[in-house]
Amino acid sequence: MSLIESRLAELGVTLPDAPAPAANYVPYVVTGNTVYVSGQISMQDGALITGKLGEGMTTEAGAAAAKTCAISLLAQLRAACGGDIDRLVRVVKLVGFVNSTPDFTEQPKVINGASDFLVAALGDKGRHARSAVSAASLPLGVAVEIEAIFEIA
């Protein structure tokens, strides 16, 4: 087991298989030492986490949904690295989209669910630049979608 996967196991997380794309795109692109991972939607155990923040979904539930996106991002990274996720040098950037009402303003707290998890799992390698924005809706009605850029060795 890799060092990163051992740390994830300590946190009670096992990486799933990388989710297949839902449309006409690739799940990731590797160019040089950079991996661009397509947006990963909030889902757990194969079930979509749907909802709209500010309308029946709490910030805490949104943060939990964002964490599931981060887990999928790491699963895609592992696939991009041919199974060797320990090639990770650092998380460079996250771009998080939150399905929310126009008056909802806690997008950063929602995306913290992913950011906090990545730092807990990866230490300094998990610290990253980030954007957290609102969307009127997201694919399949999911609560959160997050894309990422990683540096690998």
Rank of each mutant, 00 (worst) to 15 (best):
A121P: 01
A120Y: 02
F150K: 00
L140T: 14
P27I: 06
S100T: 15
I149P: 01
F104T: 02
D17A: 02
D84T: 12
G123K: 12
Y28G: 02
D17T: 09
A22D: 14
E106C: 08
L8P: 04
A63I: 01
L11G: 06
L138Q: 02
D124A: 15
K67G: 06
G126E: 04
P16S: 06
D116Q: 11
V35Q: 01
G83Q: 05
I49H: 00
F97D: 10
A136E: 14
T14K: 07
I4G: 08
S137W: 04
S2H: 04
L77K: 00
L138M: 08
A143R: 00
I85N: 10
N33M: 09
N112R: 13
A80R: 10
I4F: 07
V26R: 15
K109G: 12
D17E: 10
V142W: 01
L122N: 06
P27H: 05
E147G: 05
A79K: 13
P108S: 06
A66F: 06
E145S: 09
D124P: 12
E5K: 09
T50Q: 07
E151A: 14
T68A: 06
A148E: 04
P16G: 10
V110C: 03
C69S: 03
K125W: 12
R130L: 11
A120C: 03
R87H: 02
S137V: 14
E145K: 07
A80I: 07
Q76K: 13
G96Y: 00
M57K: 02
R7P: 13
E10R: 01
T14S: 15
V144W: 04
E147Q: 14
L118I: 02
L74P: 00
